[in-house]
Design a protein around this nucleic acid. Structure first.
Lengths: 235, 235
DNA sequence: TGCATTCCTTGACGTGCATCAAGTCCGGTA
DNA sequence: TACCGGACTTGATGCACGTCAAGGAATGCA
């Protein structure tokens, strides 16, 4: 039996997609994985490339973003240890729709799509979880698409509202929400640029919806936030 | 054994999602379905509503679109007989992200999500097909999101390029492509309005990329189309 | 032939946003 | 303390696009 790095096995074990898989098949998956270490800044997957493998982050963080022909970029997500990189691209067998870049030095375990399918064929609980996960992603992306119909302040309001459900903490002065990234990254995630994001924050501040304190936002009027965002968040 | 309308059974049998399922389980699925006839214009599913069931169109066509708070709408797709309505919403168990409206008189077979999961648990080929389908949808939506970073002429170019791969026919004067819907519908599908779409067509015409002849477009310079669209189409 | 309806195009105008260009506010370092 | 660089803000400008409004152009019907 081949040696498997314990951190690799643990990262694969922790991955949501096959969280209900038996230890035995996870072990087999880990044996089939190709493990690679990459320095900060390395391009782990390029958009347009055939998606044959799906990556699990073992150590570090990776940023998923799309680069347009004119050089502008749009951030999708930042993936940490135990999470998977563009699983949908690998499972669909099409091409990567985005770039993946190491934002810290990373270790990635690459799993070939046919191994993933072998696992799924064997354990129907896993198949169900994967289906539910992908379906959620579809719903989320759908509401992202419709979100682009509204202006930046509304998209920001929606983001803050959803984020407050996750990490908001009540304080006497209001709901405190940490945005968890730099404002430049947030701007990119909302499909805009830092200047416009700054103006959107200023506007919400002037309407006394919130106060900005560095990377944390003090929401004074959650109702206004929900009203402005007026979208349907998932589950 | 309960009576099953033959057209209902056939529509369910034709559905891509379980195309490799055995006749036996499809039969059971059909038995569990709730069949309803609705007049043209009826709202079949409302955005925000809990997605407990997935619909199969048996007769007619249904339009899937998102309505924003300000009244503007965005078309996602038009679903015909044998295709499913918002399957991802039902499988994820979240809320419908869009409205579904009957664009002709329709017959819909509604299947509860737990029936769909029962089928999936039983036939692993079906599970795999569903996963691949959903994963494709994720990739497609991802490139839809990134598409919103480009302007309307580019989005139109990308649409025409992809469409030409499906229905384009070569003629002496160029590649003839039928857009397959009214220009108002196309505008909505591209996330814009008819006026702007019209100007986008005019611009491509002025750059001698194409000629417009009603609902069919004569592409004179496919390369320019691909260059302008410069996206990655799926599989 | 005339009329109505639907679909599409063109023009004029206002606005939201990206871009470029200065600042301002920090934390780190010597 | 002084200095520096990155993160953020603010202002000025131009452009793409949505909106309102006014025509065509094609089709169906009497």
């Amino acid at each position: 039996m081949t040696y498997i790095r314990p951190d690799v096995l643990e990262a694969i074990r922790r991955c949501r997609l096959w969280r209900r898989a038996s230890d035995e098949v996870v072990q087999r998956l880990a044996e089939s994985a190709t493990v690679r270490d990459e320095p900060r800044g390395a391009l782990l997957a390029a958009q347009g490339e055939a998606a044959e493998r799906l990556g699990i982050v073992v150590v570090g963080k990776a940023r998923v973003y799309h680069a347009a022909a004119d050089g502008r970029t749009m951030a999708f997500e930042t993936v940490s240890a135990g999470e998977s990189l563009l699983p949908a691209a690998a499972l669909s067998g099409s091409r990567y729709p985005a770039n993946v870049e190491a934002s810290t030095p990373v270790t990635i375990a690459w799993i070939h799509r046919k191994e993933a399918f072998a696992l799924i064929a064997q354990e129907s609980d896993v198949a169900r979880d994967v289906i539910v996960d992908l379906a959620h992603k579809v719903v989320e992306l759908t509401s992202m698409v419709t979100g682009f119909a509204s202006d930046v302040p509304s998209r920001l309001a929606r983001f803050l509202f959803n984020r407050s459900l996750e990490v908001g903490t009540a304080t006497p002065a209001g709901l405190s929400v940490d945005i968890g990234m730099t404002k430049a990254e947030l701007a990119s995630a909302l499909g805009t640029v830092p200047e416009t994001l700054s103006r959107a924050f200023a506007r919400l501040r002037d309407d006394s919806v919130l106060e900005v304190r560095g990377r944390t936002v003090l929401v004074k009027d959650v109702g206004a936030l929900a009203r402005l965002g007026s979208g349907y968040e998932e589950s």
